[in-house]
Design a protein around this nucleic acid. Structure first.
Length: 356
DNA sequence: TAATCGTGGAG
DNA sequence: TCTCCAAGATT
């Protein structure tokens, strides 16, 4: 052990935070009280999602659903549409369920303890701690990817993720600034996001550069330790863009659970690694003279890549939508809760139909 | 414990 | 082009 290395102190982190804290739409200014509703919505949106991607969604969401009561009273289609494009759609379903629980069972006020928050849908170990600390200034720890990186470097924790999680929590709890728990939680995340970055961390600017074991040993970028994860096999499928003579397009809503659950799609086949394109017409939603697009739509999900072959066709005005499907007027397509993969397919299909 | 679950940007 | 990964939760 190197006896000359000092122990990390929360006070040094907070002093850095007071000078360098980021200004964010959901974050209260110094001295202001945080709004639990805004904090909660932001924390759900920020799960596995970058700040840059969240910002426009957050602003639109707040304008559309200003309070937890407004969100609870909204139809689910409206909530899913507001979330469309942001990904991980179970978050939106759980968010809506959580708003209803808060409105109906908690009088419109969020529980102000980690345990109370943890019992709500979509709120797990991280988010319960984050909301408790940030919105209610409770002495709770919020361990996200930033904190995992900062702490594993600070103490040179060799255990692979996610096995190291209990030890990380323990270390954060020992460091916690009990006089400023909310600021401490946000400071730890700001440090990870701006200084203690995954690659090329700015150790020279870090308030914890002296006590950091990894920096002392020169192994910063090797933390946190984690196993390499392998990507799944490519899946293939067909999607059909059927446009009626008046411009309306055939769509349907996906089942509530599973991949892209509760979102809207253009009809298509299952997605399988052994899908045979030669049999694609078996999967057509309605009979039509389909034009097959030469360039497939490529899309990458977390656990597998997808290649979607798009078929585009015109159908007569009197065509009835099959059971479970509907025609959406062209000028209302933008109001449908399409995930990006189906926006890509739709765009490709519509472009094809414009050609002579 | 290990899968599942989106998307876009950075290097 | 490819890999990583971003304020994770659920099953």
């Amino acid at each position: 052990m190197d006896a000359s290395a000092p122990q990390p102190r929360a006070a040094d982190l907070l002093a850095w935070y007071d000078r360098h804290r980021r200004v964010l739409p959901w974050r209260a200014l110094p001295g202001e009280r945080a709004d639990p509703y805004r904090v909660w919505v932001s924390e759900i949106m920020l799960q596995q999602t970058t700040i840059a991607a969240v910002k426009p969604y957050f602003e639109r969401f707040m304008a559309r659903f200003p309070t937890v009561e407004a969100l609870a009273a909204a139809p689910s289609e409206s909530v899913m549409q507001a979330w469309a494009g942001l990904g991980y759609y179970s978050r939106a379903r759980n968010l809506h369920a959580c708003a209803k629980a808060v409105a109906d069972q908690h009088g419109g006020r969020f529980p102000d303890t980690e345990e109370g928050l943890r019992a709500l849908p979509g709120i797990g170990a991280y988010t319960s701690g984050a909301v408790a600390a940030i919105a209610f200034d409770r002495p709770a720890v919020a361990v996200d990817g930033n904190v995992e990186r900062v702490i594993t470097r600070l103490f040179a924790i060799e255990d692979e993720m996610p096995s190291a999680k209990p030890l990380i929590r323990e270390r954060v709890l020992a460091l916690l600034a009990h006089d400023r728990p909310g600021d401490f939680a946000q400071a730890l995340m700001d440090l990870g996001a701006t200084i203690c970055t995954p690659r090329s961390p700015a150790c020279g600017l870090c308030p914890w550069r002296e006590p950091c074991r990894a920096r002392i040993e020169g192994t910063q970028e090797s933390f946190p330790r984690k196993a390499v994860k392998k990507t799944g096999k490519t899946r293939y499928g067909a999607a059909f863009v059927a446009m009626r003579e008046d411009g309306a397009v055939l769509v349907r809503t996906r089942p509530a659970k599973g991949l892209l659950g509760g979102m809207v799609e253009v009809p298509g086949s299952d997605w399988r690694s052994d899908y045979e394109l030669a049999d694609a017409l078996r999967d057509q939603p309605v009979a039509a003279r389909w034009r097959r697009l030469m360039l497939p739509v490529r899309h990458v999900f977390t656990h597998f890549p997808l290649e979607l072959t798009v078929f585009a066709g015109r159908v007569p005005l009197e065509m009835q939508a099959p059971e479970g499907m509907r025609f959406t007027p062209f000028n209302r397509l933008k109001e449908e809760a399409f995930p990006n993969v189906f926006l890509k397919a739709l765009e490709a299909g519509l472009e094809e139909l414009q050609r002579p």
